[in-house]
Design a protein around this nucleic acid. Structure first.
Lengths: 154, 154
DNA sequence: TGACAATATGTAGGCACCTACACATATTGT
DNA sequence: ACAATATGTGTAGGTGCCTACATATTGTCA
């Protein structure tokens, strides 16, 4: 008996995300730029929406507040963003891009532009794999893999 | 300017693989079984092909020998597999499943069976997302994301 | 209004993978 | 035959995400 279970999907997802992350990192590196993939979402959101809290970012990026918090820290150390306590709610910190961050964005925008084109190209070459991934996301949101498996076992 | 580059693909891949890994882990856990996702490939290969070396496993699983080596160690600690030096080549270690490993496989096979069904179900609900992922893999193998991006920049 | 629940953020530790490097053993070419 | 090279495996450390837990602040309602 040879199994070919969801790890067939999970495995592919893992492999591809690592390949893409690695190649993107290499691209920045070869251009003499230190850029961490996880920065992208936060920078992009702040760029388009202005100041946002950790929680807000975690919702729109669909990752945990913990990840956002860690990313915030690394971006703040680099001085690309800053965080100020919200006066109306002392629990929240409002993150925003610094002037240095703006400069950094200018530096990397040619790379972002290139990657965006590549993204489109790849999606075309794969018969819209993005749509398939979104369907997978929706399917799992509706009924989780855990629930689905439980039903099969019983 | 709002970018929506390959991180749009990379991000989705990362998110989905984490969701799937987490849910699968939860499934084992709730059945009182400690199972690590990374074990699946190695166990499955050894099950269907008999003893294999670290290198051979890394090739057929399309992961690095380092990952296989780490997985080997954890499976060996659990006493689910054993490794013996190859007499014809002292550099190689041949990995094989132990009797205890066989028993363990019996324990988890209902779960593997369920997950396999779920996998098929999900692939149907997503218009064959697996095919899309394989196309993405092939596209990136032919011309890497790095190369593609370089061409766009110049 | 004051205890209890909800919310926002942070820290510690885990997971599955990776590269860079180190080491031992085999293979090759002159 | 033996130095140079290739191959198999292992360790150290990194990446981006996660859960579980801790802490501080805010909101709620008897």
């Amino acid at each position: 008996m040879i199994y070919n279970d969801d790890s067939a999907i999970g495995k592919r997802l893992r492999r591809l995300s690592h390949i893409i992350d690695y190649d993107a990192r290499r691209l920045y590196k070869e251009h003499g730029i230190h850029f961490e993939q996880r920065w992208f979402g936060v920078i992009n959101e702040l760029m388009s929406n202005g100041p946002m809290s950790v929680k807000e970012l975690s919702v729109s990026l669909k990752i945990t507040h913990v990840s956002v918090s860690e990313t915030r820290k690394s971006l703040e150390i680099k001085n690309y963003i800053q965080s100020t306590p919200d006066k109306d709610d002392a629990r929240r910190r409002l993150l925003s891009i610094t002037d240095e961050g703006q400069l950094f964005i200018k530096t990397i925008s040619p790379i972002w532009g290139a990657l965006e084109e590549v993204s489109k190209e790849l999606n075309e070459e794969t018969n819209n794999v993005v749509q398939g991934l979104d369907k997978l996301d929706a399917a799992l949101t509706k009924t989780s893999l855990y629930e689905r498996a439980l039903m099969k076992i019983r």
